[in-house]
Design a protein around this nucleic acid. Structure first.
Lengths: 184, 184
DNA sequence: AGCCGTACTGTACGGGCGTACAGAACGGTG
DNA sequence: CACCGTTCTGTACGCCCGTACAGTACGGCT
């Protein structure tokens, strides 16, 4: 109940922010493809055309949600870390900070076949692969591949499924778990 | 063109088995909802109505693929394990053996809202929750929740993303990683 | 007052999905 | 031969999705 009172919906981007907020939550719960514009619209209390008005292709919604995370992940990728622990620390921090939309980055959108160049899906897939390569190293052996994917999976699941917990608790525990899996 | 090689289609379930095989692979790669009957049909080389003929609601395809895993998981749940290590060992073995369809059990079908009673989705969700509860214990603290989900995520990702690797390599490495994360 | 941009609503369209149904090809059995 | 069940094709339907477009309410400018 931020500014409702349907008569006074005057504040410019009130609805827009509420759409973003609802979409972030629904995407985290059900995933990108499984969340329709109608779902978001009914969660906010408007028509689905209203959602389409603010975010013209549906991709833009995801793009705008991901934008802040994209900056962080670019910085993460471009940074040279001394040891693996420092990288994992930064990675866990990144995942926790953006856990509400981390599911989109980890698996969604870059689903399978479609590769319209320039789409957010392509960039996301590049990010995800970059993280995996960073964890597994170039030309990894089978055990390295297993361990890298185990770390990726633990990060995604633990971050997404414990959104209700405070960041610090999750961060500390998850970092320890990821380090243990990575160095096993 | 219907019977392309009359010698080898003698058993009635030739097409049926090919559909099952293709569906298992596609479900593992893209997920259940993201794989259409037309995708499976074109992978096999038949019409999508042919697929629908053999597996009438789409659910049956998933149900039949999951069936062998369901037996194993029921046995797993009903078994009393002495220590956590024994349970994790059995769990990893289970995940590796059924890794081609483990994605369905871990996340798909029980997506969000729909709960038609008696559907395979409901049973799957029960299985998944049972595994999580077994890992996290009853009334877990925050750190326990994070660790349990980290283990679940590592199992799913590592198993699904390394289907091309031999079972023993994945099993050994993954068990070590899961144990390390669990006891961290 | 007139005008215009913003923020929506209502309606409609095209496409993809799972599904239903009628019929063709074919081997087996009376 | 006639009959039939199995296996598949072709066609069509209804549903939901994202999208397009015209129209409406309204506050801010000149």
């Amino acid at each position: 109940m931020t500014t409702l009172d349907p008569r006074y919906d005057a504040p410019g981007h009130a609805t827009r922010d509420r759409i973003l907020h609802a979409a972030r939550q629904l995407f985290a719960e059900r995933g990108y493809a499984a969340t329709s514009l109608a779902d978001i619209a009914s969660a906010v209390g408007v028509t689905k055309t209203a959602v389409a008005y603010h975010f013209h292709p549906k991709d833009r919604l995801a793009a705008e949600l991901i934008a802040p995370a994209a900056n962080d992940i670019i910085a993460l990728i471009e940074t040279e870390f001394g040891d693996e622990r420092a990288f994992l620390e930064a990675l866990v921090t990144f995942v926790i900070r953006h856990r509400a939309i981390i599911r989109l980055i980890m698996e969604e959108i870059g689903g399978a076949d479609d590769a319209p160049p320039g789409s957010p899906g392509e960039a996301i897939r590049a990010f995800r692969d970059c993280i995996y390569v960073r964890l597994a190293g170039p030309d990894p052996d089978p055990a390295g591949r297993v361990r890298a994917w185990a770390v990726v999976g633990s990060l995604q699941y633990a971050a997404v499924k414990t959104i209700d917990l405070p960041e610090e608790v999750v961060r500390e525990t998850l970092l320890t778990a990821a380090l243990a899996a990575y160095h096993s």
